[in-house]
């Protein structure tokens, strides 16, 4: 894990090596996959898109001289791959407005490099969820069911599922923040 703290070891003007590029991409994996998810709203497809981005970075005739350049290219490529995927599989009209997508990318790019600890905290928080809550999240994001379909399956109202899901997202956020704050105190 410590290898992720500093992907770029060379300070020269030379282009980044393959391992540096891969390291940068992996470090931002969840952000890039999330950027793809915003377009396709399918977690499995978002994962495929991230892999395609990584493979393209290693095989295409592209070179990068800084971590920021890799990330910027990664987000743009993920967005384009996502739009292509939507054209092939879904209704193109449901794609988010390009301006919003670019604003989101800009936000993601400007975030501090704290994703390793956030992701780890989030995973731990997910482990602590009650069974029923974990099941709702799994149905929504792993199985890709819409809230209406989840409501039918759990024999409850659609509004109740939206409320439950929004509470779960909020609880996960609070859990992550608490864990990160505790970790800072421990340090």
């Amino acid at each position: 894990m410590s290898g992720f703290r500093s992907c770029i070891r060379s300070t020269s003007d030379m282009a980044l090596s393959e391992q540096d590029i891969l390291c940068v991409l992996m470090k931002s994996r969840d952000r890039i996959a999330a950027a793809a998810w915003v377009v396709v709203r399918d977690a499995q497809a978002a994962e495929d898109i991230f892999q395609n981005v990584a493979i393209k970075a290693m095989t295409k005739e592209v070179s990068f001289d800084a971590e920021g350049a890799v990330l910027s290219w990664g987000f743009i490529t993920a967005r384009r791959e996502g739009i292509d995927w939507m054209r092939r599989h879904r209704n193109e009209t449901s794609i988010l407005d390009a301006e919003i997508l670019m604003l989101l990318e800009k936000d993601w790019l400007s975030e501090s490099q704290r994703e390793d600890s956030r992701t780890k905290a989030l995973r731990n928080c997910l482990r602590e969820l009650p069974q029923k809550s974990a099941e709702i999240l799994r149905l929504r994001y792993s199985k890709g069911l819409a809230c209406g379909a989840i409501a039918e399956r759990l024999e409850t109202g659609r509004d109740a599922i939206y409320k439950r899901l929004s509470r779960l997202h909020q609880a996960l956020r609070e859990c992550v923040e608490t864990r990160l704050a505790d970790a800072r105190v421990d340090v």
Binding site: R31, R123, H169
Partner: peptide
Amino acid sequence: FREIAQQAVVVA
């Protein structure tokens, strides 16, 4: 919005 997306991919 970004947080929902990131939680979604990690959940999956």
